[in-house]
């Protein structure tokens, strides 16, 4: 399996993503600079976390219009899987590859802590390493993670099984206290309709070895590698 990790000016979690992918793939993903007109042919494209273009105008707005994204949108339309984490999720919504928007956190604070996520479905090439309903612990680190979409879009996401992860408490309960940023319906991650694009605010790549305090993020990468190899 081959993967590419896209690097924009201000991206800062690309090496964490490389480490997580390498650990499961057995080879290093290719790093691709935002100004490159094309991404090499790979089995997975990853938009990692960070602060691309300093979050100018809106988080992810500039990166979404960069040259490399045109090729990523074209490849995604042909079915190449795309994973966006944190700033990557913001970029995916700014391109329109995923519906909705990520707004300033409801309490206006940057939030950096471990959260619990409920895995809504294991029926995707991204989440096959988990069980539906499973509660996992991974960190978040963001200022603009407050997911918003109109009610009609939200109902459509629910009906089509496009909700990937929701913020929850230790027992899987969905409540306001377990929601770190005010996201509507506790949404932490969503799929596109074909489930070939996943965007999520939490960082599974930062929970892959015991030195990081847990390994709950590892199954996302091992599951993806199993699905795509």
């Amino acid at each position: 399996m081959k993967a590419a990790v896209i690097v924009f000016p201000g991206t800062n979690r690309e090496q964490d993503m490389v480490d997580a992918l390498s650990a499961c793939m057995g080879n290093d993903p290719i790093l691709v600079w935002h100004g490159d007109p094309t991404v090499p042919d790979v089995d997975l494209i990853v938009l990692p976390g960070g602060f691309s273009y300093g979050d100018y105008l809106r988080s992810g707005a500039m990166a979404a219009r960069s040259p490399v994204m045109r090729d990523i949108i074209a490849k995604s339309e042909k079915g190449v899987p795309v994973l966006g984490v944190c700033n990557g999720f913001q970029i995916l919504t700014e391109t329109g590859m995923l519906p909705g928007a990520l707004m300033r956190n409801a309490d206006l604070k940057f939030v950096c802590k471990d959260v619990r996520l409920k895995v809504e479905t294991s029926q995707s090439l991204f989440a096959g390493g988990y069980q539906a309903g499973q509660v996992i612990r991974v960190p978040v680190a963001h200022h603009d993670g407050n997911y918003f979409a109109d009610e009609e879009t939200l109902d459509r996401l629910e009906d089509r099984g496009q909700i990937a992860f929701r913020y929850c408490d230790e027992d899987g309960g969905l409540n306001r206290d377990a929601n770190p940023n005010g996201s509507i319906r506790n949404i932490a991650g969503i799929y596109n309709e074909a489930k070939t694009v996943l965007g999520m605010m939490p960082h599974p790549e930062n929970m892959i070895e015991s030195a990081q305090g847990g390994t709950d993020g590892l199954a996302l990468f091992s599951g993806m590698v199993e699905a795509l190899s």
Binding site: L57, R58, A61, R65, T93, E94, P99, G100, A101, M103, F148, A149
Partner: peptide, 9 residues
């Protein structure tokens, strides 16, 4: 439409 505003919000 293409950049300055996010038409979702």
């Amino acid at each position: 439409r293409k950049l300055l505003a996010n038409m979702v919000i």
